[in-house]
Design a protein around this nucleic acid. Sequence first.
DNA 1: GCTAACTTTTAGATCAATCTAAAAACAACT
DNA 2: AGTTGTTTTTAGATTGATCTAAAAGTTAGC
Lengths: 363, 363
Amino acid sequence: MHLDALPHQNQRDTASVTLKDIAAHAGVSRSTVSLVLRESPLVAEQTRLKVQHSIKALGYVYNRGAAALRGSRTSTLGVVVYDIANPFFGAMVAGIDAALNREGYVSFLANSEDSPARQQRFLERMREHSVDGILLCPAEGTDPGLIDTLDNWGMACVQVLRHVAEPPFDYAGANFHQGVCQAMDHLVRLGHQRIAFLGGHSEHSATRERWQGYRESLEHHQLTYQRLLRSTVTRRDGVDMITQLMAESPAPTAVVCHNDMVAFGAMLGLKRLGLVPGVDCAVIGTDDVEEASLSEPSLTSIATHPYAIGEEAARLALRRIANPEGAREQVVLAPRLQIRDSCGAARPTSDSTLPNRAAGTHA
Amino acid sequence: MHLDALPHQNQRDTASVTLKDIAAHAGVSRSTVSLVLRESPLVAEQTRLKVQHSIKALGYVYNRGAAALRGSRTSTLGVVVYDIANPFFGAMVAGIDAALNREGYVSFLANSEDSPARQQRFLERMREHSVDGILLCPAEGTDPGLIDTLDNWGMACVQVLRHVAEPPFDYAGANFHQGVCQAMDHLVRLGHQRIAFLGGHSEHSATRERWQGYRESLEHHQLTYQRLLRSTVTRRDGVDMITQLMAESPAPTAVVCHNDMVAFGAMLGLKRLGLVPGVDCAVIGTDDVEEASLSEPSLTSIATHPYAIGEEAARLALRRIANPEGAREQVVLAPRLQIRDSCGAARPTSDSTLPNRAAGTHA
DNA sequence: GCTAACTTTTAGATCAATCTAAAAACAACT
DNA sequence: AGTTGTTTTTAGATTGATCTAAAAGTTAGC
C-alpha cells in the first residue's frame, strides 16, 4: 500500500467519523442515523440495531458543536461565582455538577472575584459560546439591570445566594433571615442579653437578609444592646472585630457571624485575648463548613447546605431552559442550626454532630 | 402594522445577527466580515472601520460554535479535578482561569470525586464538546493507559499534581520530594530525632514523591526512627493518626503531614490529649492554605502554590494545543517552607509570615 | 496602452449535525 | 387491482462561521 495515496492528508490524522460514515457503513441515510442517535421512535427496531452496531464499529463520537449549530440547545451552562477558593463554593459547585450531569449537561465555571467588570467579560464570553443558561452569584456592585440584559439575550439566568434584580426572577439560596433568627433564639434561650452581629460587606440581599434577621430578633426579644459591625468576611476580619468589641464596655456575651470564616477568626481573637470561646463569649457562625465540627471548641453554625443549593439552582435553570416563559421561581432552603460547643454547651471533646437531617424547600 | 405578518415566527424572538446581516449592512461580502473579525491584515483600513461600525450598530455576537465547526479550535479547555470542595483546588482553578482568560479561552470544570468511572464519563462528554485540551488531576486508580487514549483522541492533555502515565507526558505540579526534604532538614536543625510522616492514600506520584522524600531524608540524616502512616487525607485522619502515635513508646517529637488538613487534625488531636502543638510535638503541613497562618498555633507548612500551579498548567496546555508535536514538558514548581509557630519557634501571638517570596520553575 | 505585480474582495464549498416535507415501503381494506 | 392509511426512510435545505481559489481593483514600469 502506498503511504502517500492521499498526499496532503497528514494533518487529519484524527479523521473524525461522522454521520455520513455511519450511514454508508450501515447502508442507510444520514437522516436515519440522526434519528437513531436521538432515540426517535420513528425508526424500525431492525434498522436501529444495524445503525447502533455501525456506530460502535466505527467508534463514532457525537459532535455536540455541530448539533448545537442546527438545533437550539448546547447542553451547556455557565456558572459565575465570586470566590471559588472558598470551600462553600467548592461544595456548591459540586452540587451543581451533580444535578447537571444527570441531564447530560456540562458547565463552564468562571470566578468573578467580586468584580463586576470581570463578571461582565465572562458573561459575554459565555454568550459567544451560546450557553443555554447562566447560574449567577452576582458580584458585589452588580448593576440590577444586568438580569434584564441577560433576559434580553434570551439566556435563562438563575441568581444564586444573592439577588440584585427586581422581584420577578429565578433565584436559589438559603433563608438567611430565618437562620439568623434561629441562632438568636437559641442564644436568648441560653440567657444571653448582649448579642452582636459580625460582618457583612455591603448592599446585596444576602447581607441585608442577615442584618434584618438580627434587628427583628432583637426587637422580638426586646433586647436593647445592639452592635452590628460591617466588614469583609474573612478570618482576619473576625479577629479584628472581636478584639475591638471585647475592649468595649459593656462587651457582648455572644456574637453571631456572617459566615464561618469570620466565626473562626472571632474564636481565634478570643483565645489571643486569653478568653475561652463558648465560655467567656458564645460564637455562632454561618454555613456549617466541614471544618466547623473540627475546630476547638467545635463551632455552632447555621447550616446553609451549599451542595443542596447548588443542586436546586441547577435544576431550576434546567426547568427554565425547558420552559422559558414559565413563572419565575424562588427556591429558598431552610437553614438548620447545628449546635456544638462554641455557644456555651461546652462539653470539650465530645462530637456533638446531630444525626437528623432536615432541608425544607418552598417556592 | 400587522402582528401576524410573519405567521410562525414567534419562536425566533431572539433572531440572532449573523455575518450575513453585517455584510448586507456594510455593503461587503461575508468573507470580508469574517476577515475583519479575525483581525486579518488583508482587509483595507477603510473597509475595516466600515464593517466594525456595522458590527456595533447591529449588536452582533460572535458565534464560537459555528466557527469551531469549520475551524479547528473551540477555545475551550476541560478541567478535571478530584475534589473541588478542597480550598487547594479552589485556588488552583482560580489560577487556571486567570491564565486561560488572557487567551480568550474558557474552561469546563468537572469533579471526579476520585472516581475513575466518573472521570471517564466527564472525559467522554468533553470530547463530545470537542474541547481543545484537558487539564487532568487523575483520580485515584486511573489506568495509566488513559493518557495514551486521550492522545489518540487527538486531545492535548496536561496532568496536574499527580501523574500516572509513562515518562513522555505533559505535567505541572510541585516538587513534593524537595518540599518534604526541606521540612525534614528544618526539623533536624531544631534537634528532632523522631519524626513521623502522616498520611497519603495510595500509589500515585504525589504520594510516592512525598514518601520517598521522607525516607531519603531519614537516611541522609542517619535517623533510625521511622514511622510512616498511610491514610486518606482529612482532618479526622490527622486526629486519629496523632492519637495513635502519641500512645506509642517512644512517641515522635515531630510529624510532617501529607497536607494541611491532616496537619490541622494532628494539632487538634494533640490539644485533645492535653499536649501543645509546637512544644510537645512539632507539626508541619503541606500546601500552605490560607488558614495555615490563622490557626492556633499558626501552622508551619510546605507552600505548594496552587494558584501558580494552575496558571502553569493552563499555559502548558495552550502551548501544547498550539504545537501538538512539540516536546512534552514537565513544569515542577519549587515549594518553599513557610515557617510559623507549630514547629517549635513558639512565639504565641506573633504574625510570623515572612515577607520574601520565591517560586522557582524548571523544566 | 499594456503587462506585471500587488492589494482587496468575493463566490461558493465546507464543516457535521438537524429539520422539513415528501417519497418509498408495507399492510389493510374495499 | 386500486385506494387508503400507516410506518419508515430519505433528499436536500439549513445553521453560521471559515477556507480556498479566483476575480476585481490598484499601482508601477516600460
